[in-house]
Amino acid sequence: MIEIANILIVVFLLIGAFLSLVAAFGVIRLPDVYTRNHAASKSATLGVMCILIGALLYFYFIDGYFNPRIILGIVFIFLTSPVAGHLIGRAAYNSGVKLWDQSVRDDYKEVSEKKKKLAEKGNR
């Protein structure tokens, strides 16, 4: 039983560390804010969740101590990180950050330009 638990803990921790590493690579390597946002908001979420699950299992199986705060942490990260990704992307677009020049399609352009014009009218 302890053996299986050990293997599970190791696997979770390694996957979590690997995903965090990939998220860091993605932030360095990808071309613009939006694609970087993809890497940061997804891989980092699952990476941190996996590390937390590994910690939970470790303390439960090795020390016999069940820590509900870790579960709360997992749930909070799961709920908040997609919202954070959405807000960063939206703020970037509304403050005029350009898409990558190899981007193919932009359905949002007209709408955001219209919004900007309205906002300028409101300011006058």
Binding site: L19, V22, A23, D32, A39, K42, L99, S103, V104, D106
Partner: peptide, 22 residues
């Protein structure tokens, strides 16, 4: 989604076509 991100980040060539759709 993590598998997809890992794939596109670790691919040697950046050949994806990003964009915004409604």
């Amino acid at each position: 989604s993590n598998v997809a991100v890992v794939k596109s980040v670790l691919k040697p060539k950046l050949d994806m076509k990003p964009g915004i759709f409604a």
